[in-house]
Amino acid sequence: MTLSETQRDRLAAALAVIACEAGEILRAHHGGDCPHVLKPDGSPSSAADLEAETLILAALAKACPGIPVVAEETCHNVPPADLFFLVDPLDGTRDFLAGNPEYSVNIGLVEGNRPVAAALAAPGLGRVWFAGTSAFEAPIRAGRPDAARPVHARPAPAAGLVALVSRRHGDSETEACLAALPIESRRGAASALKFCLIASGEADIYVRCGPTMEWDTAAGDHVLTAAGGCVVAPTGRPMIYGRHALSYRNGPFAALGDPAYADRLGLPDRGPQTRPLDADAAGAGSGLSPAASNP
């Protein structure tokens, strides 16, 4: 099915509430001795991740029964469908455990192979972004979004671009991409928050050539795209989602506030970035309940 603009906007607002509620769980753990373990890939998983994901899964099941959820901690092998959620309950776990407030809750709804509604909460900063047909930011007050305002990515400044760079994931390929652009300054930032800072006109570009997962990027991708920016793969085309056969791994990408710079990127091409829906998702149903269309 295809969601109407009204459904997308209502869902985005509902996802913002869910993301903020999950963020309250994270805030309760932040700054303390949060129990955690290392997963086989070496990344950490904490009690905060698991508690936040449990809340999100329950809330999505209530609001949108029948729509499958692919979530990092407990259901990352679920196949996609015509409509499905991508969820990262705590993006930036290493920074979170180190006391950095730049962590986020990412929830994106994908239709076909592109996100159509999303929310990204940064509880440590008291900010939440959400987007259906347009992008909004709101302060978080008492654990909920309050007084949302539209956000728009900015045109490239004449003085040069402000690049957001990861404090933990630099690499030579990313450096080569940035070296080919008129970068005026760099700013360190963690998690998927980088997409939303660009969407709010606070920076201009974020390049990532190292490994990421689809639940890391779907929500931020949609917020930035709805704000007038873009997120592109090495082909210059938009990022696509639902690649179960690749275990939901992304290739290199760049997030841009000004799409005019998309053809000046030199992202390394590591294979096709487009796909039909996976065969194992063919025929998988997806439903939208009255609760989801009118949250």
Rank of each mutant, 00 (worst) to 15 (best):
S286C: 15
G236T: 04
C34V: 05
L288A: 12
A176Q: 14
D146K: 04
E102G: 01
P211T: 08
F253T: 09
S247P: 00
A147Y: 04
I25M: 04
P139A: 15
S293E: 15
E72I: 10
P123H: 09
R249I: 04
P35K: 03
L181M: 12
P115H: 13
S200R: 14
T133F: 08
R264L: 14
G99E: 10
R27H: 08
R187G: 00
S134I: 01
G257I: 14
G143V: 00
G143C: 07
A282K: 13
L97V: 09
A59L: 01
A61C: 03
T217L: 11
N77E: 13
A281T: 04
C64Y: 07
A282F: 13
Y206Q: 02
D146Y: 14
D263Q: 15
G32Q: 03
H29K: 06
A179H: 10
E184F: 02
D95M: 12
V37K: 08
P238M: 07
A119C: 14
T212L: 05
G201Y: 07
H29W: 10
V110Y: 08
P89L: 05
L267F: 12
A279L: 12
E111S: 15
G236H: 06
R243W: 06
C75P: 04
W215D: 02
E184G: 06
A98S: 12
T217Q: 05
R249L: 09
A135C: 12
G23V: 03
G160W: 03
N106R: 06
S185E: 01
F253K: 04
R270M: 11
Q273G: 14
